[in-house]
Design a protein around this nucleic acid. Sequence first.
DNA 1: TAGGCCATCTGGTCCT
DNA 2: AGGACCAGATGGCCTA
Length: 210
Amino acid sequence: MDSVYSDIDSNSCDFFPHTDDEDSRGSLRSASPDSSPLCPSPSPEPEQQLQQQKKRRRGRGRSEATVQVVKKNRRLKANDRERNRMHNLNDALDALRGVLPAFPDETKLTKIETLRFAHNYIWALSETIRIADLQAGKTGDAALLLSPACLGGAPSPGSDACSWSSSGSSSSSSPAYSASSPGSPSAPEDCGYLQQDALYGFRGFVPGIY
DNA sequence: TAGGCCATCTGGTCCT
DNA sequence: AGGACCAGATGGCCTA
């Protein structure tokens, strides 16, 4: 709309130097503070001050300029909160990127890629567990395909604690990216893509749930 | 240069 | 009333 705040915002990213109270007190000297209608300005100008005071009494207790400044300050404060909120969101996304298996020599995942990859990854892990359970039930062998550390807490960022070993054969350290839609809860019985096809294909992944 | 991604601003809505 | 959350708009940066 207007670029009034563009300069201000670039300078107010790191901190918000003053509060609403400070603003209403400090920058509203032209318009008298709303908190003290009975206390006139120290140097009463004859005509304009009287008119402003009349305006104040007529209105809701605040002059137009005061309302504008208060609005502007609220907006700046809201901008600051929104900025921090988005920073927190980005921090959480970074933490998620750190937990996910890293691409081999690839650029940082975008936001949407991170979310989709995490979705696929969780789904693939759960599939692995499911298959492991099935196989364990068949053979009576309780061999786990994933280390218990992978099943319990979150792996430390960048660690290999959850190295991909869905079958133990052709795993390498590559993550699994399901190119098919993992949104479907019913996974196909043939889970070979967990080791192969699912890898590196998620950028073309068309999610069904987004 | 077009398109994708991102950061930020902004106004609206909901919640406490 | 104020804060959190959300979605749309906008402009900058980067890459194919």
